[in-house]
Design a protein around this nucleic acid. Structure first.
Length: 217
DNA sequence: AACGACCGCAACCGCCGATGA
DNA sequence: TTCATCGGCGGTTGCGGTCGT
């Protein structure tokens, strides 16, 4: 049998819940960690009464519920730092995230793939068609991504990379793009938190934490 | 107004290394 | 040394929202 399927943490328990976290689950997790601290995620999940894997709890906590997590609105400075560090280390998202306080590896990874990689690919395909010319950028975008050079495994760096310095992320896509934070984005939907039927969490972290404080021991 | 295409993000999956019995 | 368990990481996917026609 495959080792993975034998792993208790990966075992397909029919009782294990998957998919989006509910507000109740979030509150349980926040309360439990507030009272007992984080760590030993599998036993935490069991002790807290959550029908989730330890992995799922850890991910939810680190990427969303942690009080110091900052979400949305990557600043131009952060974007530049991400580009520099990615040029240096490649897809070492957790390593990159350590240099961006409050940012998670998952967010940086998503940001890179959805915002930056897209433009890099555009530039690459364009450069392929314009190989004799340098720094001629697509006209269908305001962004001017530079060419990506190749990774040197020995030095753990890319040879050179020319990214736009203060090119802000596109704001034309997400509905929340003009909001400073996703919390404010959620706040704009109040006082009618949606998805009430599925009870999927769409609450601001401030709300969750204030609820936690109210419920606090 | 309706609908399909596209995009962003949360969450899951698979793998690997560390640790302890 | 071997095995089980856990934590962490990077890659991938599915869903919901937005945009364009």
């Amino acid at each position: 049998m495959d080792k993975k399927t034998c792993n208790s943490q990966d075992f397909q328990d029919p009782e294990v819940r998957k998919g989006p976290w509910t507000m109740e689950e979030d509150l349980i997790l926040i309360n439990y960690i507030a009272n007992h601290g984080e760590g030993v995620w599998n036993s935490l999940a069991r002790s807290a009464g959550l029908k989730r894997t330890g992995k799922s709890c850890r991910l939810r906590w680190l990427n969303y519920l942690r009080p110091d997590v900052r979400r949305g609105n990557i600043t131009p400075e952060e974007q530049l730092l991400i580009m520099e560090l990615h040029a240096k280390w490649g897809n070492r998202w957790s390593k990159i995230a350590k240099h961006l306080p409050g940012r998670t590896d998952n967010e940086i990874k998503n940001y890179w793939r959805t915002r930056i990689q897209k433009h890099v690919k555009q530039a690459e395909t364009f450069d392929a068609g314009q190989s004799s010319e340098h720094h001629i950028y697509p006209t269908n975008t305001a962004h001017v991504p530079g060419p990506v050079d190749h990774y040197h495994p020995v030095s753990e760096t890319y040879s050179s990379i020319a990214y736009p310095g203060n090119d802000p992320p596109s704001t034309s896509q997400a509905s929340c793009a003009n909001h400073p934070t996703i919390e404010n984005c959620y706040a704009d939907n109040f006082p009618a938190p949606f998805s009430t039927e599925s009870n999927v969490s769409v609450w601001s972290m401030e709300d969750l934490w204030s609820m936690q404080l109210l419920n606090g021991d």
